[in-house]
């Protein structure tokens, strides 16, 4: 099994949620960033995305995606972010939140940010799944002849 299909730790879950969140929405939910010391300034780069031959076999290189990373310190807590796209503010905000969520204010940021993002992501997914479900083909067989 791959690493990410194993049960995830809370930190893995929140880092994923912050990375997948729309940058503008994250900024709305957490507009003010506390003072922080930048360890690695937001940097835009590319990650090679791998697929598997036949969906299950040997890895192959599918193509790259843009990713922005950032590392910083809030007080004594180090936060990291690797987020899809080229938005440096997104990476910085995600890294700050990664640090804050390890601290004693975690419960507050969980409520203010994570719970909201999680709910919105779930809704967005469910909406698409429900539209897909409406296009599922219901086969019916015409009765030919009769047994009676």
């Amino acid at each position: 099994m791959s690493e990410h299909s194993l049960p995830q730790t809370p930190r893995q879950i929140w880092m994923g949620l912050l990375a997948r969140a729309p940058a503008a929405r994250l900024a709305e939910l957490c507009p003010d960033l506390p003072p922080h010391e930048v360890l690695r300034a937001p940097e835009v780069g590319a990650v090679m995305v791998e697929g598997r031959i036949g969906g299950t076999g040997q890895p192959f290189n599918l193509g790259e995606m843009t990713v922005t990373r950032c590392a910083l310190r809030v007080g004594s807590l180090v936060g990291h972010a690797y987020v899809q796209g080229r938005d440096k503010d997104h990476a910085r905000r995600a890294a700050v939140l990664d640090a804050l969520l390890q601290g004693d204010q975690a419960a507050r940021y969980r409520r203010q940010v994570l719970d909201v993002l999680q709910a919105e992501e779930t809704t967005a997914r469910a909406t698409r799944a429900a539209k897909a479900a409406a296009t599922k083909v219901e086969f019916f067989t015409l009765v030919r002849g009769d047994d009676q």
Binding site: H4, G45, E50, G51, G55, M65, V67
Partner: peptide
Amino acid sequence: RTTLPRLGSSCPIETAQMAVI
């Protein structure tokens, strides 16, 4: 693309877990 530093390679994506449309 050639101007971007390569930050790494992903884990292979799992298409069996795709949210299919």
